[in-house]
């Protein structure tokens, strides 16, 4: 499978092309976001309805990672 590079919170990751972004974040145990009360959250429904997997992708806030395939050079930012 072709490997590509994406950046998550400033760190470079090598991933298989077309990997699901929510899957990549969970693989690396990176919380996608902080909840309103400060809990770390990761993907739950995996199909675009719960919104738990929101991240910033290429400077666009609040994108659903579970509906995103990774592409070369993608820059992902999660809430610290």
């Amino acid at each position: 499978m072709k490997q590509i590079h994406i950046s998550i919170n400033g760190t470079r990751y090598q991933v298989a092309e077309h990997s699901n972004l929510a899957a990549v974040l969970m693989t690396n145990a990176i919380a996608n976001r902080r909840s309103v009360s400060g809990e770390p959250r990761m993907a739950v429904c995996g199909m675009g309805s719960c919104g738990e997997c929101r991240v910033t992708i290429n400077q666009q806030a609040h994108q659903l990672a579970c509906l995103q395939q990774c592409s070369e050079g993608m820059e992902v930012q999660c809430e610290p």
Binding site: V15, A16, S19, N20, A22, A23, V24, M26, T27, A29, A31, S35, E39, P40, R41, M42, A43, V44, C45, G46, M47, C66
Partner: peptide, 21 residues
């Protein structure tokens, strides 16, 4: 239930199909 890695049954299936080892 809000802990990370508690997720849907179909949710886990979807992520595994999407590359989660």
């Amino acid at each position: 239930w809000t802990l990370p890695k508690v997720l849907g049954v179909g949710g886990l299936q979807a992520l595994v199909k999407g590359g989660l080892p």
